[in-house]
Design a protein around this nucleic acid. Sequence first.
RNA 1: GGCCCCAUCGUCUAGAGGCCUAGGACAUCAGGUUCUCAUCCUGAAAACCGGGAUUCGAAUUCCCGUGGGGUCACCA
Length: 464
Amino acid sequence: MDNQEKVVRTRIAPSPTGYPHIGTIYQALFNYAFAHRHNGQFLVRIEDTDQSRLIEGAEDVIFKALDWFGLTEDESPRKNGPYAPYRQSERLETYQKFAKELIEKGGAYYCFCTKERLEEMRKQLQQEKKPLRYDRHCRMLSKEDVEQKLSTGEQYVVRLKIPDNTTITVKDEIRGDIEFRSEEVDEQVLLKSDGFPTYHLAVVVDDHLMKISHVVRGEEWITSAPKHVLLYEYFDWEMPRFYHTPVLRNPDKSKLSKRHGHTNVGWYTDSGYLPEAILNYLALMGWSHPEEKEIFSLDEFISLFDLADMKPVGPIFDLAKLTWMNGMYIREMDDATLIQRLKEFDSQVTTLDEKTLELFVPIAKTRMKTLAEFLPLVTPFLDKPSLSLSDEEKQQRKALSAHLATVQEWKTELVLDSLKQFVSNNTGINFKYLYKIILGTNQGLPLVDAFVIIGKEKTLELLS
RNA sequence: GGCCCCAUCGUCUAGAGGCCUAGGACAUCAGGUUCUCAUCCUGAAAACCGGGAUUCGAAUUCCCGUGGGGUCACCA
């Protein structure tokens, strides 16, 4: 009975405060994979308790991103579920109820300090070079004082009470027990004066109510974890297992940010990255395949992944390796799928002749690292590019055109022979030069293959 | 600065006391294949932060430094 495996339930708790961050997807991946590995549920809870930071439409975009990656949740505001609502702004009474209960239990207290007083207090502490913690001013208030202030409608917040002289232990499953001296922990606000909870109250209440079994979140939460542990103890609730995953970093090792890297999921979408490649890359940040494989599917990852195997080191997000991996996925994709993806990526691809597309894709494939690189490869053969060439180069172009016009049968070997002949007939000319006078760059799709695809007529037109 | 976390090639990592002359991947460089460029193949260069301790033996355990990161809100 004791050994009965608990249902695994994980969650991500994004705030709708802007574009979806790649770090959110990183978290989602591990939460999703772990839940699926254990036939559990993965939920998305929207943490919209900061009214001032809300951005309209941000929630939608988060779900759109999750869909794009295929990290579909089991319960969320859009899907509902047994523990609805899943949007914190709709659960206010719940938090208020528990805040009250906590006060009655002696785990929290009313605080009437004004913003001004707090500011002054901090200034003072700063001058004295003391840690910036609340001075517990209102904790000393008598019951009568509190009642009196409450009855006159004075604004208040609810603060967490920290016990004196104890050690609070956070059991982190990735790095082991982490100990905090209680006097190092701030008596944080749990319920704000606008009636909204802060993260600390909301997360504990919701994780408990929603029966979250494994809390998998970024390392930046370690410092506030003792507050959460305390809350679980005060409420006498069973604690979930905590896994603090490493934070993704910029090349300069700081926390991955907009300033130094590409954090917006939309950037990857727009740049022609494939969701499966991104996920594969992300999976390798802090985890490694038991056979040291680099390329593997989400399903394979799910079947192998264990949170206990996570490394605690913050990895640097290396766009170059992601890009390589993306190219790998493109190369290994079958042509039909790739064509489909290209069309979805850029509607301009839809306008191309289907047959032409089918012929171009195989030769373009090995030359693309992102979907965005397809069109620039192909269009120079379809729409005559306007080039700025020297007179001599124009001359050569004409000569080449005349030379190719003599090819009897427009077949790969014959066209190639013709080109080779042209090159050997003219001293100082090589294939690289040919690219220059035909495409304007010294590289591109194989000329012969491309010429055969578009046909003799169009080729000559291109060179005219 | 206080507290907390972390530490193997430039980057992601393998490594759970002898299999390590430290392995793989990206990036870099050099060759090969090739109509250019890619792809593909071959190869090269490249790391255990420092110091103690434990041990017959330490990248692996322990301590102390050092370095990097995180966090210190009525934000999450």
